[in-house]
Design a protein around this nucleic acid. Structure first.
Length: 110
RNA sequence: GAAGUGGGCCAGGCGACCGCGGACCGGUGCGGUCCAGCAUUGGACCGUGUCGGGAUGAGGAAAGUCCGGGCUCCACAGGGCAGGAGGCAGGUUAACGGCCUGGCGGGGUGACCCGACGGAAAGCGCCGCAGAAAAGAAGACUCCCGCUGCCCGCCUCGGCGGGUGAGAGAAAAGCUGAAACGGUGGUGUAAGAGACCACCAGCGUCGUGGCAACACGGCGGCUUGGCAAGCCCCCUCCGGAGCAAGCGCAUGUAGGAGCGCCAUGGUGUGGCCCGCACCGCGCUCGGGUAGCGCGCUAGAGCCUGGCGGUGACGCCAGGAGUAGAUAAAUGGCCGCCCAUCGACAGAACCCGGCUUAUCGGCCCACUUCGCAC
RNA sequence: GCGGGCGUGGCGGAAUUGGCAGACGCGUACGGUUCAGGUCCGUAUGGGGGCAACCCCGUGAAGGUUCAAGUCCUUUCGCCCGCA
């Protein structure tokens, strides 16, 4: 699973991407016009808690992303943990990601 | 059995499947270099992609960053001032503000626990309100006494009684306060006082024991508040930075332009001075960069046994054993077991401590109380 | 990794060398002014107890030094800032 690493790439996704919120996950999605590998990033803000709490959040997101079929062709996605992510089951989070991504797939079809 | 004290240990386990970091091994594609050969080609090494195999992979505090070191660079880390830290004694150690043993003080019936525990007659400063007085202030004030003097009365003519409080005496009492020129009791006196005596506290000094802190005993003269976590004094220790240290490679219009200063100068140097080393330096404009590799994990380390030591610890012998990431790896799911899957919590150069957080459980030693034998 | 600062009523923000904690401003409540509202003026305003006089507790938390701590010291929690 290719991850976004450099500061410049993050900046590109933040400025050009669209945001979508859910109780269990928040995400920023950038549609890629030209080729290049689709990538993912996992973020847990510091205000959520200590290092163990945030590591757990990112592991849940990682497992959910794997189940949801990431990385998806043509998208760079940043996944943010929320307060609910820590105690959620990865399967729930995967469904949440799926429903949110559904909007973007629909838009793509139009 | 109940309550408690001290010390040590564990931090769910096993199996199956899917996934993550990553050393290593094997296959294979591409590129480069070298070697052999006339040549198709073959072999070795390096880089890179891909497929398969595959050991191994967070903590007792990884935490807070409160101390101490190692390591690296600055000069080989040197002198002084400033600044900072520590503060009963002896030991332990690489070092420490840690630890051990002992002393002293305090708490507990006890096992045990706690203690920033040098100096206030080196100096400066502070001690509000109350109180006569608050730090040597004079014996100032109230109070005490009635020797001398003065006044009045009596009378046996020199004394007696009464009054006064000028002079002399004295430091006991003075309601306050956190704290008042040691405390209690006695002798003494006009009244009193370490003036004298006994005991206690404290000080000095001598002796004995102890490496020492200190303890015990004798003697002495009678006595000098508290705060140093106020400044300070004394003793001991500390050069500065930190793995973004530091070294190498690659990239780059890059050995850039302008102005200013310059040897009693500038930089290394981080507060200052000296010393040492180097010879350009400062500002502005413009440009570039946090890519890759090394450092990077085996270390004053851990376990077991023996010896020395009261102990911390030291010495010797044997044994086991690679976390090294860099947008940063440990997760998901199923089954079984203990007891309900639990607490605090995630390595980032590495160690030794300290402090703080913490569900539940186990082991050892000891104390007090109750009951039974 | 290294270094520095802050925490006081509901809010902002004072409290000199330790010596009566909450000055001052805002806000809130009540009353007055007005036909009504605003402005303005006055009173009250940390918590608990008491009929009252008054007493006790309160400066992020827990200890300590001192006769006395918002102030000094230690540990700890939270927040903010700077440097590489």
């Amino acid at each position: 699973m290719e991850t976004i690493k450099s500061k410049q790439d993050f900046g590109r996704v933040f400025s050009g991407g669209k945001r979508a919120n859910h109780r269990l996950v928040r995400m920023t999605v950038l549609r890629l016009n030209e080729g290049g590998p689709a990538r993912v990033a996992f973020v847990a803000p510091k205000r959520l808690g200590n290092a163990v709490f945030r590591n757990r959040c990112k592991r849940v997101l990682r497992e959910a992303a794997r189940e949801a079929g990431f990385p998806r062709e043509g998208f760079d996605v940043i996944l943010f943990a929320t307060q609910g992510t820590h105690d959620a089951h990865p399967h729930e989070v995967a469904q949440a990601i799926g429903s949110v991504m559904g909007r973007f797939d629909k838009n793509k079809g139009q």
